[in-house]
Computed example of a mutant assay.
Amino acid sequence: MSHTAHIPSHRKPRQRASKSALRAGVAGGFLSTIAVAGAAGPAQAEPVTQTIEMPTIASNFSAAAAASAQATQQLALDIEKQADQDAAAAKAAKDAKKAHAEAVRKDEAKKKAEAAEKKAEAAEKKAKAEAEAKERAERASRSTERTTLSASTGSSGSSSSGSSASAPSSSSSSNVSGSAASIVAFAKAQVGDAYVSGGTGPNAWDCSGLVQAAYRTANIDLPRVSQAQSTAGTQVSLDNLQPGDILYWGGAGSAYHVAIYVGGGQFVGAQNSSTGTVQRSMDYDRPTGAVRVL
């Protein structure tokens, strides 16, 4: 067996040699390029412009983003709208509560007013009923006095010859005779009647109408007005009065008020619409003068 047959060869395959040569050529060319560029200098270098293209957003992504933004805006509007509705509802509830409280207050005030009005009406009815009862009693009393007066006047008229004959009067502190008794009794019987300007009875009088009616019971006709009545007889002093004398206020012939002296320092007269026909002390309203007709 030959010794040379077992010794491997130290030569590289040709293919490997060609690869090495290729690598050496590429490297040499790269270095040569660098050397040339360096020798040329910066003045000969040209700027490198590079355009980067961004990937185009897909149309479906844009639509989704727009829809999301619209949904967010709508949500914000819905929240704002809901907040406005809640505020309006709260205000309406507050106003309703206030209105209810005001209605309750007014209703209570109305009930109180109605109760007070009913109470006042009841009191008024009671007072009216009492006044009517009192008036009926007074009228009955006056009717009795008039009946008694008619009987007493007839008997005294036949038994007396003048003013010196007198009979006691149940309605006066003085002794009153004949016609004077009739006049005084009639005047007292009208106490409580109403005062009406121009009134001549039977339940409403003015001052001269009452005096005229009282003297008619004694068959004496007097003038209708107070001015004429104040001069219808003989002027007498207020210190020398007799029952039946006519009292007047104002001047004789120009009097503005008249009444009848009933004795005991008192008079009866239809005073005014507030008091009606009353019996008063002369100190209540001192007259100016007096006239005696009887």
Rank of each mutant, 00 (worst) to 15 (best):
I34S: 04
A5C: 09
R286C: 02
K112Y: 06
K125H: 09
E124D: 15
A5T: 09
S177Q: 07
D84N: 00
A109T: 13
V184K: 06
E117K: 15
A151C: 06
S18C: 05
G29K: 13
R216E: 12
A109G: 08
R280F: 13
S9F: 06
L149M: 13
E53S: 05
R11C: 07
A123C: 10
L75E: 04
K110I: 07
Q271G: 00
D84P: 01
Y215C: 02
K111P: 03
A123P: 03
T231C: 08
V211S: 03
K111G: 08
T72Q: 14
S230V: 03
Q190I: 06
S160Y: 12
S166Y: 05
Q266N: 07
N175K: 06
L210P: 00
A103Y: 07
S172A: 08
G276T: 12
V278L: 10
S143D: 14
A65F: 13
L31Q: 05
A140Y: 11
L22M: 08
I34L: 07
A255S: 10
V293T: 12
T72G: 13
S68L: 15
I260P: 00
D221K: 09
A45M: 09
Y195R: 02
A37G: 10
S62I: 15
L31I: 13
S18V: 10
R224Q: 09
Q235N: 08
I220P: 01
S20D: 11
R142I: 15
S158N: 14
K19Q: 14
R216C: 07
K188D: 03
P287D: 13
A255Q: 01
D78C: 02
Q279I: 05
S237M: 10
D206L: 02
A123S: 09
E80I: 00
H10Y: 10
I57M: 14
A39Y: 09
A103R: 05
K91S: 01
E46A: 14
M1S: 10
D107S: 12
K119A: 14
R16V: 03
A89G: 00
G41S: 11
G178K: 02
G192H: 04
D206M: 06
G276I: 10
S159F: 12
V26G: 08
K119C: 10
A133C: 14
S68T: 14
G178P: 03
N203W: 09
I183S: 04
G28I: 13
A99T: 11
L294D: 14
A89Q: 00
A116L: 12
M1R: 03
L222F: 02
A213D: 03
A83F: 00
